[in-house]
Design a protein around this nucleic acid. Structure first.
Lengths: 206, 206
DNA sequence: TCAAATAGGGAACGCATGCGTCTATAAAAC
DNA sequence: GTTTTATAGACGCATGCGTTCCCTATTTGA
């Protein structure tokens, strides 16, 4: 009965997904929900509906909603995936790289991923374990990269040695996330350039 | 008259509060709840229990939970109440004042009020109306003050003229709230001094 | 090729939480 | 003494987690 209806209508709808295909669909749906409605309004039911599956299939894979969220977050691009790692070739100045970094960060913050990040970061403010997971996966690598960039800048004579410290490495992310996450102010390309030119570069220049 | 009535009738315990006294007790309880459990776990029932009253008394005054939260937030000290306004006398340099400002901001962020602020700011990230209310009451005055301070610094020859812009005025709050609210890192007195000396002052010095 | 094993789809359920209302009683104000 | 208001708790309602059940699709391997 449904079989007949289904096989005839399933030209459009792919058949029942299983295994990894279904898992990916669930994670993708979870991430989309996170982006659109935020952590607070995120429900397992919505994720199931969006992925066109049942809650049971979700709970077969993730014991709790929290675990699902954490895994869904891994859909976010890591710093490396943002192309931050490979830019350290000789031809670029520290300031060139900084502009790239600022673009990379704000590209993420301004995309749907930014909304997901915002809601999860806010939830993390009240959830130490979530906070630790996010820091480990996203922030620690970014901090390390920026410090390495500053150190490289010192070697090239572009950055003053005292600028190599976590305090200063955190200024760019702090200003960007403060604006985008806490203030909800849109950040334009022009803003990014301003931030780098007027704040970061004066701060570190030799 | 209330004083007389109260001192006579409430030698042991004022058994049943009314009017303003009750209202204050509710707001205080609401603020304490906000600080301790955060916006997400904030419930009207807890507030009633903490204020030793019933929900009806709360709903007689505030139509919804949100309204109660907004009013409770007003228990937070305004920038003026932090003593920011009157420090603009001749004897202090811009940098002296900046250190005072940094202390004032972090004093708030490190107190229970900081936890309340954190949870509400995070909620505000998903609630434009709440965000607007907070910005109007707390952030706009602070921004205005910092800009005025920078302008005064230019007149005194301590600050370079190009530093007078919102971008730069926002660096101190951005770095502080990024650390305290988003990163959950404790901020010590030493950190505050570092932030002012290594970031803000170099950025604005003439 | 076909049956047995495995896994997905869909929906109902129990349970807990919390909002906002409502009622009954008790205390304060006038 | 009458009116207003506080206290205390029950109530209805909605939401959403995590479980369970039954049925059906897909895979596997004999």
């Amino acid at each position: 009965m449904t079989a007949a209806a289904r096989s005839s209508s399933s030209v459009v709808t792919p058949h029942r997904r299983r295994g990894a295909a279904l898992e990916d669909a669930i994670l993708e749906a979870a991430f989309a929900e996170l982006s659109e409605v935020g952590y607070t309004s995120f429900t397992v039911e919505s994720v199931a509906a969006r992925a066109r599956t049942g809650k049971a299939s979700i709970y077969r894979r993730w014991p709790t909603k929290q675990d699902l969220v954490l895994d869904a977050l891994c859909q976010l691009p890591t710093p490396e995936q943002c192309g931050l790692e490979p830019v350290l070739d000789e031809s670029m100045t520290t300031f060139d790289v900084l502009r790239e970094v600022a673009h990379a960060i704000s590209r993420v913050l301004l995309s749907p991923a930014g909304d997901a990040m915002r809601s999860v970061k806010c939830e993390a403010a009240a959830d130490p374990e979530l906070a630790r997971a996010i820091d480990e996966r996203f922030q620690a690598p970014r901090r390390a990269f920026l410090l390495a960039l500053l150190r490289r800048g010192v070697e090239r004579g572009e950055v003053r040695p005292e600028a190599v410290n976590p305090l200063i490495a955190d200024v760019l992310p702090a200003v960007l996330t403060h604006r985008v996450i806490l203030q909800r102010e849109p950040v334009t390309e022009a803003d990014i350039i301003d931030i780098v030119e007027q704040i970061v570069i004066p701060l570190i220049s030799a």
